[in-house]
Design a protein around this nucleic acid. Structure first.
Lengths: 323, 323
DNA sequence: TCCTGTATTGAATAAATATTCAATCTGATT
DNA sequence: AATCAGATTGAATATTTATTCAATACAGGA
């Protein structure tokens, strides 16, 4: 009966609040109501649809893709970067700088950051990070050894060192090959105190940045010299492996795949990685669709940064399981 | 350069805040930002047009008319009531109940309310007030004496008494004719202690509700028996009078018009009325356009309640002065 | 390179807003 | 009428949000 007057009052209060930017206390004085009533009228105005709040996504952002990926893979956060061409080079560039910005606005002091150095996306990330943005993070820890070839191995240490200096943190290196010739060789390397000390610090990580690699075709693995025997590769394929994070392999459903190979890796394990509070995966590219899907289903990362093409490909995949 | 990432972040924060209704503290945890940053991003999101807040006026409300009237006449508050027919009867009904609702939601305890009893709109107002809404206002004071005819005079006291009982307040009556036969007769009436006591309480008013009357044609004044001599009426007209509030006359520019007649009125004066913190004028109807305009220009009320037809007529008037 | 003025940031805190609570009212049902 | 569950209100207060402040950071000029 007096509903129309109530609605008018809600609209009036909303007008003073949202358009004239008055405080509730001012409105309550002006309209001779109590502040509590003003507050209640405002929230009723939203319920009644008198006040409507809309969010316009800026061009070049993809909140829907992000939402769908977050939802589908139960991720804490997803960033989908704008990208103009569906080629690896453009994609790496896009996700590299998107990840760099995400990283910059997200790191806090006292952070213990882990970085896997096998991904070209992470190379781009480190390149794109701004000269320095205040922080002294505590440490930057290398999560896997370098690549067999000593020249490339030093490349890995360089990324770690570079990131560390960018955030004003102490670099913690893993001075060992990522993949040893044999399980026995690995044990020898682990005997090294420096190596062991680094690996013991994995438990203190507060943030990890990792790439997601395909088993095949892979640029990186091809470069890794004698790391892989051809039969080993086909063995992994046989076991259903689709990709790796930090040289730890998983299948299409994201399950860790154990193999003799795993015994030869020097670096963080997947369970260790999973216990890190904030794991950021950075990856994109047409070749990697199934690989990334596996990694995400496996829940090995909680934050995922990619480009719009990769995002769309992932979303076009069927997604059976959802309890 | 990294502007697109900033915009994305604003949109993301806005989404979590406005759509998912998270608190800023939750968002800051989820996105690894500080709460201060979240707050700043949110307000930037409004500035950037990422978040847009719109107010939909409910059907039957006229915020634009209200705004224009508020603006034009510098009023603290205006209520424009829905009304389906531009006839006095429909208008009185509309503004009566609109004013009743306004009054109900606006009065507070300890209020000292004055009411002028010469207006049919105020009759409707009192009729429309709900059975009782909690409050004990302190007093309801009659602002002008009754009409010459003793029968009608008691009518005036009834309105006062009725309103008083509706708000649980003590009625304070003005037991005298609104217009005496002569200035001398007025002085005699003022000798009455009760009358004087009431009039002394005018200074304590916190709210006054008044009608706005036309000089001519007027229903009320015709009923008032010997109040007006025909020559008096034409004398007032000659002086430019267009209407009255509480039997005090003003011209088309709202200026008080003094006359011998004024000496015979028992009731609140315009300066006294003006010193009341909250003066609510209730009026509408085609006959009254110029009258109401004068009253509003004069600034004799700070709150004005009317119907949409009257509102439109007022706004169609030219409005020259605006410093 | 070293200033100097403008900008950003997070922690601390001031300010603003939402909620609790007790009082009171409404109105439905005996 | 009498009673009782559900509303509604404002004051008090808890919670949430915006702003201040001090500490850098950065850009541009000397």
């Amino acid at each position: 009966m007096s509903r129309i007057y109530e609605l008018r009052l809600m609209a009036r209060v909303a007008q003073l609040y949202h358009e004239k930017n008055l405080k509730q206390a001012q409105i309550s004085k002006q309209l001779h109501l109590s502040q509590a009533t003003v507050s209640r009228l405002l929230s009723r105005a939203v319920d009644e649809g008198i006040v409507r709040i809309t969010i316009n996504a800026p061009r070049g952002t993809y909140p829907q893709l992000e939402d769908q990926l977050r939802d589908r893979y139960r991720l804490a956060e997803v960033v989908v970067a704008e990208c103009y061409e569906d080629r690896d080079e453009a994609i790496l560039s896009a996700i590299g700088s998107a990840a760099a910005y995400y990283f910059e606005s997200t790191v806090s002091p006292d952070e213990v950051i882990g970085i896997s150095c096998w991904s070209s996306a992470l190379l781009r990330l480190v390149d794109a990070i701004h000269p320095i943005k205040r922080l002294k993070a505590e440490k930057v820890i290398q999560l896997v050894g370098g690549i067999g070839n000593p020249a490339v191995q030093s490349h890995a240490t360089q990324i770690t060192t570079r990131l560390a200096s960018l955030v004003g943190a102490a670099p913690v290196l893993l001075p060992a090959p990522g993949v040893t010739a044999s399980s026995a060789a690995r044990l020898v390397m682990l005997g090294d105190g420096y190596v062991r000390s680094t690996m013991e610090q994995f438990r203190r990580l507060t943030m990890a940045i990792v790439g997601i690699g395909t088993l095949e075709p892979s640029y990186m693995l091809h470069n890794s010299g004698n790391t892989f025997a051809a039969d080993e590769l086909s063995d992994l394929k046989q076991r259903g492996v689709v990709g790796d994070i930090c040289m730890r392999f998983f299948d299409a459903d994201g399950r860790f795949v154990d193999s003799p190979f795993d015994e030869r890796v020097i670096g963080i394990t997947l369970p260790e990685l999973k216990s890190v509070p904030h794991v950021i995966g950075v990856a994109g590219g047409a070749r990697k669709t199934a690989t990334i899907h596996g990694a995400l289903v496996g829940g090995w990362v909680d934050t995922f940064i990619t480009d719009k093409f990769t995002a769309e490909r992932l979303l076009s995949l069927p997604f059976p399981h959802r309890e």
